[in-house]
Amino acid sequence: MYLLETEGLSYQFRKEETVLNNIQLQVPEGSIYGFLGPNGAGKTTTLKLVLGLLRKQKGRVRIFGKDLDFDRLSILQQTGSLIESPSLYLHLTARENLLLYQRIYQCNPNRISYVLELTGLSHTGNKRCSSFSLGMNQRLAIAVALLHNPRLLILDEPTNGLDPSGIIEMRELLRSINRNMGITILISSHLLSEIEKLATHTGIINNGSLVFQGTFSQLMQQQQAACSLFYKTSDNLAAQTFLRQRNIVVDMDQDTLILPLLPREEIARINRELMKEGIDLFQVHAPETSLEQTFMNLINQN
């Protein structure tokens, strides 16, 4: 059971320009789901569709098991959001902004002091939001999103424009919200390092298509399965014949044999057998795959 699911979500701004193509997001309950992708990949459009801010053209959005088309208000009652930049009434104070939303959500007025405390803004008093720093406004926007104690928080690039200490503060805040309150967080970013440090699950979008979805360890496994092993031997032709006899797919590129990445034990066994056949091994190389490289590979493949 996923807290948020989309089925076949597609979107076009113009007829010839497909912005999203068959997006199947699956956000597990209790997770921090990092929605990753380069700028212009379709992250914000997806999140706007999920929140009903853009009129849906194709596909379905289900949140808390309910269809957005039929239960929009009850879904929004349990969802907090921050899309792109903070949305605040700059001529009002932090407390007044929250009071305004407290009326709309009809939640307990004590929540105002609670979320101000949680986001470290209880000292702002009569200061208007127009004189807040970007970091403070960003935190206030999170406070607004948390005011009604939502089950799901949807945040679109919440660390945009923050300095390094602001980014760390934001990360800690989100982590504690997830752990201590059990709030599921769907957070988008174009920064892999940011998502890697925070998220439990990830979805990678590129050119409007979801190219990966799962946990980070699944991402690494998937990528490693697509990796290769490089051999340089004293007799590449004999080694190729020997390996093919054992049903191992081998390609040759100049003086290098290319095999699919195999388990470590299998590599050791092949090495021993090649040595027994009198073939010397000059080099056995399995390139390390970093998460960053994996991400770039996925983006470039697409």
Binding site: L51, L53, L76, S81, S85, S87, Y89, L90, Y101, Y105
Partner: peptide, 18 residues
């Protein structure tokens, strides 16, 4: 235009209000 000036349409439209 208070929502346009403060860029708050998106927040208001994700509130549970018809």
């Amino acid at each position: 235009q208070v929502e346009v000036r403060n860029n708050t349409w998106k927040q208001l439209h994700t509130a549970p209000l018809p």
